[in-house]
């Protein structure tokens, strides 16, 4: 489980003076779902293209399953599936015909190709539409066909660029479910997105991209810890002596910040789940607890807060 399958060191891509990716270090282990986050133009797609050997790095090294995508692109591309952001098919051909072309490009024998195509269509739930022309497909069906297209080469790694963009919420959920199934089969997945709650829903670890650099990396909790200080936010309503209450909450071990929102509402930021301690503290300070609620750290917040800080730092320079 711990084998490193994808590794980039000092990866850099320049287009003239513009630096698209700036000394990026990235490590992905086998069986992980890794999310690349970041605003448009942060260098996510360029990074992906370099990992696949579709564009050459200006500097730095990449190892994908032990292969160098620059020198051994065929070995890399035979083992890594790529679901691009701009996904296109031959409209006049049926789903199956499109997949047959991919199978042939992968050098599969006919009977093997047909078997894998049937399996892949079955797995992503498109068997019923296999012989319809792709021009009749909806956005969601195309996206699933794209995944089938990736699956027929039986990849060890799948790289997805904005896989759920433009899908309606229901279809996006189905798609995330498929991603979880793939992970269960032991396939390593690298996906880029700026739809944060979806990334949070499937990713084991995430990396936050900003101006070609990976500025944060880790699990969502770790990121929240780093950016938000306290990762757990406890909302409570209590009646009683305000100053004393606030003071006793602040004294608790593990509390980062206490804020009074209005006459009764308080916000406590903590490093761990401290609901029980908070309730006890309120009681001991002579207050009456009316409600207590904990908010899980959300990637949206991490993201928003990070870029808020970024902007503030930038304007301070």
């Amino acid at each position: 489980m711990d084998e490193v399958v994808l590794e980039a060191r000092g990866l850099t891509k320049r287009y003239g003076d513009f630096v698209a990716v700036d000394h990026l270090d990235l490590t992905v282990r086998q069986g992980e779902v890794f999310g690349l986050l970041g605003p448009n133009g942060a260098g996510k797609t360029t990074t992906i293209l370099m990992l696949l050997g579709l564009t050459e790095p200006t500097e730095g090294t990449v190892r994908v399953l032990g292969f160098d995508p620059v020198r051994q692109p065929l070995s890399v591309k035979a083992r890594v599936g790529y679901l691009p952001e701009q996904l296109g098919f031959y409209e006049g051909l049926t789903a199956r015909e499109n997949l047959i072309y991919t199978a042939k490009l992968n050098g599969l024998r006919r009977d093997e190709a047909y078997r894998r195509i049937d399996e892949a269509l079955e797995q992503i739930g498109l068997s019923h539409a296999a012989d319809q022309p792709v021009s009749t497909f909806s956005r969601g069906m195309r996206q699933r066909l794209g995944l089938a297209d990736v699956l027929i080469k039986k990849p060890e790694i799948i790289i997805m660029d904005e896989p759920t963009q433009g899908l309606d919420p229901g279809v996006a959920q189905e798609f995330l479910e498929i991603i979880r199934n793939l992970k269960a089969q032991g396939i390593t997945i690298l996906l880029s997105s700026h739809l944060l709650h979806q990334v949070q829903a499937v990713c084991d670890r995430v990396g936050l991209f900003h101006r070609g650099r990976m500025v944060l990396e880790g699990t969502v909790e770790e990121l929240a810890q780093q950016v938000l200080g306290g990762a757990y936010r406890i909302h409570l309503e209590a009646e009683g002596p305000k100053e004393a209450l606030e003071e006793s909450l602040r004294r608790l071990e593990g509390v980062v910040k206490v804020e009074r929102m209005d006459t009764k509402a308080y916000l406590v930021e903590a490093r761990r789940d401290m609901r029980a301690e908070v309730a006890r503290a309120v009681h001991e300070a002579g207050g009456a607890l009316l409600s207590l609620d904990m908010e899980l750290p959300s990637l949206d917040e991490v993201y928003a807060r990070y870029f808020e800080q970024e902007v503030n730092d930038g304007s301070a320079d």
């Binding site: 065929l74 701009q86 996904l87 991919t102 490009l105 080469k153």
Partner: peptide
Amino acid sequence: NRRTISRLLSQPIY
């Protein structure tokens, strides 16, 4: 224009 190019070139061909 059909956006098939990246899918094509991500197959193991030059």
